[in-house]
Design a protein around this nucleic acid. Structure first.
Lengths: 114, 114
DNA sequence: ATGATTGTTTGACGAGTATCCAACGATCCG
DNA sequence: CGGATCGTTGGATACTCGTCAAACAATCAT
């Protein structure tokens, strides 16, 4: 099932509907150093372009990062808006907070603590 | 580094010290259906024997479950006390709550919601 | 149009992992 | 002692996954 609420606004990459987000898939998606680093970027708020520089992920090939972003999107963690050549990624904070209350806040605190 | 606080009491299987518990390893350990099911058992409180019946994991070989329990222990999620032939597993709730405040609570709520 | 930019897709490869099975070690019980 | 119980370990196998490289598609700029 695909989320339909954003129809007619912009173009978005496919993502699971809110009610289809599964905890085990979210945890699996975040149980990787690269994707957890991406999460910490997204947690800072706003939209993030796929072009990443100086965030400690320069050693990775662009296709590798594209793969990781797809995993996060498929798990329901992020939403990706398509604007021309660019993709802007943001956290699905409202959806995640509604489905797993306190999870993102705990992860944010945990990431800061380390 | 190994946690030394429990010396002289009982025999425990090796586990990482509290300050060595890493968020990404915890998330990776829990990003698996079997281990997340185990977590939900441990979250109910008390110690749980390794003998599991009627909890929806009967289809797995005992060595497979032993492997999953080892992963949880190595990630710092659980502690295992050895008493004779038996092993009693419990959550390291205090350690995890101290290191990642709110994480276990959010996971518990998330598991109940599903 | 031509070329540069941005990101995805596909294939390949090595590393990791989930599972079962068999064997083992340790422990408890007659 | 001898057998049963509880759990771990090692090997084998199939599958998943992280990474890179090359090709591709779409868009923007000149």
């Amino acid at each position: 099932m695909t989320d339909e609420r954003m129809r007619g606004q912009d173009e978005w990459l496919p993502q699971p509907a809110t009610e289809d987000i599964e905890l085990v898939k979210v945890l699996h998606a975040l149980g990787d150093p690269v994707r957890l680093r991406l999460l910490s970027l997204y947690l800072e708020g706003g939209e993030v372009s796929c072009t990443l520089e100086g965030v400690g992920l320069d050693h990775l090939h662009k296709s590798t990062l594209s793969h990781h972003m797809k995993v996060l999107r498929a798990a329901g963690v992020t939403a990706t808006r398509v604007a021309g050549r660019n993709r802007f990624v943001r956290l699905r904070r409202q959806d995640l907070d509604g489905r797993f209350p306190g999870l993102l806040d705990a992860l944010l605190k945990g990431l800061e603590a380390q």
